[in-house]
């Protein structure tokens, strides 16, 4: 008996299934949702499909999308970062104060990102080396960092009409808003890192099975620490853009943004258990949330109702993602006497 052949026979079947819903959904499902949503909005919402409106949507989502890019990497390792919203405030405040003190624009921006990275380092170190649950760690730093933002600003916004990096939030290159260009660059970098580098494979390995990753030679603690740093840097960048957009430092900036970022990641099909998901999905998830918000505003739907609809959409997406994992979705089991 040739066991190679028998194995091939045994295993050929699932690959040849005529239609595999789970695989189809993984590849294009969320994209189809976006296409349908866009077509729907174009049909019923006034002015939706004008170029300037679409660019406005893109600019509006850029902050959440940048946040969600870092969040995706954290969630891919099986972690979570609730502190990114507060990090936006702290890094924005620091960058604005530095700019007012005369620090040149590029350095002020980098400083804001570095502050974000430092917040992430604390999260990562506590999670990886003290083996604390990331949910609790980042819940703690979320509260702490918000308090820090209030303390530094004494609870008041710092308005600086001559803010030297204001173009980062309000400028254009050609017709494209600068935040949108920054967002595209962030996604390109994160995509490349996750898909094409050794580090990216290690991120997936840690999330897929931390013990197996350790035994395969992956430095699990370093990887875990690094993803929080990455999320922090993304949050720092988002914070600087936020400050540039409103030309001031706001201690309340980014409140609740962490949840929008998590929603975008989950909508994009990344598993909260880690190890499965794609950065492109997160971008689509962010766009869906943005299109939904803008479309509902154009349709004059009340803000309260908008929240109801957003909530339903998030749960629907997660439900589909969860159901596709279950065999009952594919075929019914049980004895056949």
């Amino acid at each position: 008996m040739n066991s190679d052949e028998t194995n091939a026979l045994k295993e050929a079947k699932p690959a040849r299934e005529p239609f595999d819903f789970a695989r189809w959904w993984d590849r294009v499902g969320i994209l189809m949702v976006l296409v349908v949503l866009v077509l729907l909005m174009a049909a019923i919402a006034p002015n939706f499909n004008r170029v300037d409106n679409l660019l406005n949507i893109a600019r509006a989502i850029s902050i959440n999308a940048i946040l969600a890019a870092g969040m995706t990497v954290v969630i891919l390792t099986g972690g979570i970062d609730l502190s990114v919203g507060s990090t936006i405030a702290v890094s924005g405040v620091v960058a604005v104060i530095a700019a007012i003190a005369g620090v040149p624009a590029p350095l002020a921006v980098l400083l804001g990102m570095a502050v974000g990275g430092l917040c992430g380092l604390v999260n990562g170190w506590l999670t990886a080396y003290l083996a604390l649950a990331p949910f609790i760690v980042t819940l703690g730093t979320m509260t702490f960092l918000r308090g820090l933002a209030y303390t530094i600003t004494d609870g008041q916004p710092i308005v600086s009409s001559g803010l030297n990096f204001r173009d980062l939030g309000n400028g254009y290159i050609g017709p494209i808003p600068i935040p949108v260009i920054v967002m595209v660059v962030v996604y390109a970098v994160v995509w490349f890192v996750l898909e094409r580098t050794r580090y990216g494979r290690h991120v997936y390995a840690v999330g897929g099975n931390a013990e197996a990753a350790q035994l395969a030679g992956v430095q699990v603690k370093r990887v875990v620490t690094s993803v929080y740093v990455l999320a922090g840097v993304c949050a720092g960048l988002a914070g600087v853009i936020f400050s540039a957009r409103v030309i001031s430092a706001q201690p309340t900036a980014g409140t609740g943004y962490e949840l929008d970022a998590i929603a975008a990641v989950v909508l994009g099909g990344t598993s909260l258990a880690g190890g499965r998901g794609r950065i492109v999905g997160t971008l689509i998830g962010s766009i869906i949330l943005g299109v939904l918000s803008t479309g509902l505003i154009l349709l004059n739907v009340q803000f309260f109702t908008q929240l109801l609809i957003k909530g339903v959409v998030i749960i629907l997406a997660v439900a589909i993602d969860s159901l596709k994992q279950r065999p009952l979705f594919l075929r019914a089991g049980g004895p056949k006497p």
Binding site: Y204, A205, A212, R276
Partner: peptide
């Protein structure tokens, strides 16, 4: 399954 492989990968 628990220590060796990344089952989903």
């Amino acid at each position: 399954k628990e220590q060796g492989l990344f089952l989903d990968h």
